[in-house]
């Protein structure tokens, strides 16, 4: 009897510790929705997260070992790329789109500005094999890292076996990226009643709620749907957005709604990075030609803002900056990678 009870307790403690481990590795804020990512297929593990972080910062992922994921997704820019309006790949090639921020990825189903990627696990395959980004192939990257005892150990620690497969490589990258949770901005602290908005921020929040929230839904500040941003087509880039994936005309010039968190760190803005200042974005959305286009679309109304209102709105948007996230040492280049080169 006592033995049975002990076994039962052991099982309970085991299950409980599993849940607790997930809470520590993935601290979901209480007011965030249920994540979209299915953790059952890829349970978080501190060693797999570590491995994912190594891979994220390792230029071995590119053909000439010059570009890592972090080259265009720098932690100090909320994992976007500030210096470039368009992504910058091997041999100084320039891509077609502005590298997006990476955070709160567990709440997203479709990735890239056009939603071409349907799961976080597969996201890395696209930049890895794009000739204008890393110019590599998954198989060749695996061949390269298979020869490195550094990765042999890291894979063994993460997956309890020496096998380096495409699945494990991609899942480790997902693990690291899933831990990139941005939820400690002033907005979040106000939400948790730890802080209060200033009068100006309050006015800005009201304007936000009247004009922006239908696409930039709280608390993630995006619906992660595809919407028209009413920017004219850049003939040189010829990027038609979502329609390139769905081949459905109604998706023409629609792009994934970006989150408004961490805007101060992640300029330039829009899918082609054409605006460097928030003011330019607001001026675009309140331009009379754009207002006319809003009027024509279903469920969207035009945005009218005075100069003062724009200032107030920006004051609110700046409360979405999450310094703790951007300067989190756990998100930076892992020093262990330096020991690898000495092998």
């Amino acid at each position: 009897m006592a033995k049975n009870l002990l076994a039962f307790l052991a099982v309970v403690i085991f299950l409980f510790s599993f849940r607790e481990a997930r809470k520590v590795l993935f601290p979901k804020p209480s007011y965030f929705p249920k994540p979209e990512y299915n953790f059952k297929n890829n349970p978080l593990d501190s060693n797999a997260i570590k491995l994912g972080r190594y891979l994220f910062f390792d230029p071995v992922l590119s053909k000439d070992s010059t570009i890592s994921c972090a080259s265009c997704h720098s932690p100090f820019n909320a994992f976007a790329h500030t210096d470039h309006s368009l992504s910058h790949g091997i041999n100084d090639t320039i891509g077609r789109r502005n590298a997006p921020t990476l955070f709160n990825l567990a709440w997203q189903n479709l990735f890239m500005w056009d939603g071409a990627i349907n799961h976080l696990d597969f996201q890395a395959l696209a930049p890895l094999s794009s000739p204008a980004e890393m110019g590599e192939s998954l198989n060749h990257v695996l061949q390269k890292i298979n020869k490195q005892t550094f990765y042999e150990k890291a894979f063994k620690a993460a997956f309890d076996s020496n096998e380096i497969s495409g699945e494990r490589f991609l899942k480790a990258l997902s693990q690291f990226q899933l831990t990139l949770i941005s939820a400690n901005s002033k907005y979040d602290r106000v939400r948790l009643e730890k802080e209060q908005f200033t009068e100006q921020e309050k006015r800005g929040y009201l304007l936000f709620s009247q004009n922006c929230v239908s696409c930039h839904i709280e608390p993630l500040f995006s619906s992660y749907e595809f919407e028209s941003n009413f920017l004219p087509l850049n003939a040189f880039l010829n990027d038609n957005g979502r329609v390139e994936v769905t081949l459905n005309e109604k998706d023409s010039m629609k792009f994934k709604v970006p989150s408004l968190r961490n805007l101060s760190f992640s300029f330039p803005y829009m899918h082609d990075g054409r605006f460097t200042k928030l003011n330019e974005v607001l001026n675009h959305y309140t331009d009379s030609t754009v207002q006319a286009q809003f009027l024509k679309s279903i469920n969207k109304s035009p945005i009218y803002l005075s100069g003062d209102e724009k200032v107030d709105l920006i004051a609110f948007l700046l409360t979405l900056n999450d310094k703790e996230f951007v300067f989190n040492p756990k998100h930076r280049f892992p020093k262990e990678l330096l020991t690898k080169t000495k092998e």
């Binding site: 890829n42 071409a116 799961h119 395959l125 495409g166």
Partner: peptide, 24 residues
Amino acid sequence: TNVSGAFGGALDPTKGMYWSWQSG
């Protein structure tokens, strides 16, 4: 299966049967 993330074995994306520029 197509929208459920990475799998191993026959479905491992190293098999040359997975698109990279667009999922599927």
